[in-house]
Amino acid sequence: MAEIIGVRFKSVGKVYYFDPGELRVEKGARVIVETARGVECGEVAMGNRQIEDQKLSKPLKKVMRLASPEDLKKVHDNAAKEKQAFKVCEEKIAKHKLSMKLVDVEFTFDNNKILFYFTADGRVDFRELVKDLASVFRTRIELRQIGVRDEAKMLGGLGICGRPFCCSTFLGEFQPVSIKMAKEQGLSLNPTKISGTCGRLMCCLKYEQAAYDDLLRTTPKAGTPVRTKDGRGTVVEVNLLTGMLKVAPEKDSAAAKFYPKSEVRPIREGRGEGRQESRAEGRGAGRGEAAPEEPQEEK
């Protein structure tokens, strides 16, 4: 077992594990840690706890120290610098006539690097822009192209439900969402109704998918032959959430009725009920009872 703490560097970002050493850290505290891109100040999202060694992919870096008032002041000063850097970068983009949209600027805690996040329709040759920015800020410059979902997460906003974006309030990482989920949940396939502000499929389609997958495993699909208390029929409509099935009888398909799925038994042709009926007919014919003749088509 290893003792770890979870640290995130953005308000709604991925949580990274670090070794607290002898420190006892509470959730919400600020700590100084060393990351792949340099020294950073992060917020503790998960206090001290034990975790199995097998769940750790590599040795953890140790927490350097708890953030001091001077460290927090530096973080505040960096935020002010980011706003100024944003304006400068926009001016440089316009000067170089680049087809890109600046989304956010981020200073590392030790000011060794400035990251500029942008969106663009395709690849952008920003080599001259980097040189221009480096001559202004006298530090390492990194331009990082992001997608529209990341842009929505950074900027925030209100979704069509009237609530703040899920990605900017509590989703640490994006989950894959497919049009198949909308189909299985019986939603309208109109892109304007199932797409978020970012233009991609709404993240909330993923929330109930596990429940729908479970219901789909236990509910007959439309077109399935079934037996009800009123006889044989075919499922013509399914409501997964209520568990009600609309079944059309074999003899009168217009007289379809709704049944709870607990009162409906699927008929699997070639086995089960169909096989039992065949055996019954065979036994009757063997005892001297004539099996009914099949009507012959006229040629």
Rank of each mutant, 00 (worst) to 15 (best):
E293A: 14
L245C: 10
D77M: 10
E40P: 00
E297S: 11
D121E: 15
I5F: 07
A254N: 11
N239V: 05
L155F: 02
I51F: 04
S253D: 07
R65Y: 08
M181Y: 05
I267T: 09
I194A: 06
K183C: 06
N48H: 09
M46Q: 14
F116C: 10
R268K: 11
V148W: 04
F9S: 06
Y259W: 13
N48W: 04
A134N: 07
D125K: 07
E269H: 08
F9N: 04
K113Y: 02
T119L: 13
D132C: 03
M181Q: 13
Y17L: 15
G162I: 09
K83H: 09
P69W: 05
V238Y: 05
R123K: 13
K261V: 14
P69N: 06
V226Q: 10
Y17R: 12
M244E: 15
A211P: 01
G159T: 01
V105K: 05
Q175V: 13
Q209T: 02
T219Q: 11
R200P: 00
G42V: 05
P266R: 08
G21S: 12
E273S: 06
N190D: 15
F170E: 03
R138Y: 04
V235W: 10
E22C: 07
A290Y: 01
C203S: 05
K221R: 14
K81I: 00
P225Y: 04
K95C: 01
Q54P: 00
I4G: 03
M154N: 02
G233V: 10
K10D: 12
A36K: 11
T35Q: 04
G196C: 03
V124L: 05
V238I: 02
R24I: 14
A2T: 13
L171R: 12
K113N: 11
V264R: 09
C161V: 04
L133D: 08
E184R: 10
I32N: 07
G274D: 15
R227T: 14
G196W: 00
E281G: 11
F86T: 10
Y17E: 14
E294K: 10
V148E: 14
A152I: 07
R138W: 01
R123A: 06
R268I: 14
F165Q: 11
E151Y: 04
T197Q: 14
L201N: 02
T228F: 06
K92G: 00
D110Q: 06
D230Y: 09
K97A: 14
G243T: 09
S168N: 12
A94W: 08
L171S: 01
V88P: 01
T242W: 06
M244C: 00
R149P: 03
S99V: 04
T139H: 02
P20I: 12
S168G: 10
C198Y: 05
E106Y: 04
R49Q: 11
L205W: 02
F9E: 03
L187W: 01
E34N: 10
L133C: 08
S188N: 09
R217E: 15
F18E: 13
S188T: 15
R279C: 05
